[in-house]
């Protein structure tokens, strides 16, 4: 059960497929024009991901190694067809707005990546939870991006619009308060001018349309990722143990010493094993050197 919880946490934060691994960019950038679209896309991907992980893990000893990718595709495509038909029947509006991206879940690299990196090597229950965790991470990321884009690009959140959501009335109100404080009887020309200026300014407010178009997706994704990296770097600078929220992988599988790593893409053969020891020494020497340099600077 501990591994299952760890998998959930891993998918949500440590190896969030969108913000950390930057996988599945096609739906991330194309679909998140509104929070609801992002949520729908994330949830449908999560269902496919969890079930495909479960099935692939169950069949991992049956599928021959040489044809594993076509076999995975067959499993994923069947699941996507089921999900697509269900969505068309019960949520036709969402199905219409997501369009081709439902079918494109088949070739979503998160799904194939998890099948290859985790489900094909692990037992069924952890694989199921790995799928749910990754899917949740994807859903949270897509909903966040969708919310930000919808808020700035369409002045609504989950389709709800209101004058309070966006500064239509508040600045006008503020100016009126200032107006009353400064001159309760008859507003001076300056305050009146200011008042009409701000009223004109903000009543004509229109949302930033570019954010619900294609370029907006790049802006929002980049800024959200930058914020997340900034938080991590700040924590690191303070000397906190960030291993819990950082992906434990330096992404350099060839020189990695952890041969039991479940995300290993390149299996260490004998040549690499021989070369491993000096590499480790060099790395240690480097870290010692940088630490010393840091002390000297201090």
């Amino acid at each position: 059960m501990k591994t299952c919880l760890e998998r959930l946490y891993n998918g949500l934060i440590k190896e969030n497929p969108t913000f950390v691994l930057t996988l599945g960019m096609c739906p991330t950038l194309a679909v998140t024009t509104s929070a609801f679209n992002g949520l729908g896309m994330g949830l449908s991907t999560m269902v496919v991901l969890a079930l495909s992980n479960l099935l692939i893990s169950a069949l991992r000893k049956v599928i021959p190694d040489k044809v594993r990718i076509p076999a995975y595709i067959v499993i994923v495509a069947s699941l996507v067809t089921v999900v697509g038909l269900l969505m068309e029947a019960y949520v036709p509006g969402l199905y219409a707005s997501l369009g081709i991206y439902i079918d494109l879940i088949v070739v979503n690299c998160i799904i194939l990546g998890r099948a290859e990196a985790y489900a094909s090597k692990n037992k069924m229950l952890p694989s199921l939870f790995d799928g749910i965790g990754m899917g949740l991470g994807f859903t949270v990321a897509l909903t966040l991006i969708g919310m930000v884009r919808e808020f700035f690009g369409n002045a609504s959140i989950f389709g709800f619009t209101g004058p309070e959501v966006y500064g239509t009335t508040i600045p006008v109100l503020l100016v009126e308060i200032v107006n009353k404080i400064f001159n309760p009887d008859s507003a001076s020309a300056f305050v009146r001018g200011l008042n009409s200026f701000f009223a004109g300014e903000f009543s004509s407010y229109s949302p930033i349309g570019i954010l619900i178009m294609a370029p907006g997706a790049f802006f929002v994704l980049a800024i959200l990722t930058a914020i997340q990296n900034a938080i991590k770097m700040k924590g690191e600078a303070k000397g906190k143990d960030m291993s819990k929220i950082q992906s434990g992988c330096s992404s350099d599988c060839l020189n990695c010493s952890d041969s039991g790593c479940s995300h290993r893409l390149i299996q260490p053969d004998k040549v690499v094993k021989k070369a491993k020891e000096p590499v480790k020494e060099v790395k240690e020497a480097e870290t010692v050197a940088t630490e010393e340099a840091g002390k000297e600077e201090k």
């Binding site: 229109s206 930033i208 349309g209 570019i210 954010l211 178009m213 370029p215």
Partner: peptide, 10 residues
Amino acid sequence: CFLVISFAKY
């Protein structure tokens, strides 16, 4: 261009 795309009306 950012402004033209976002606020075409203005």
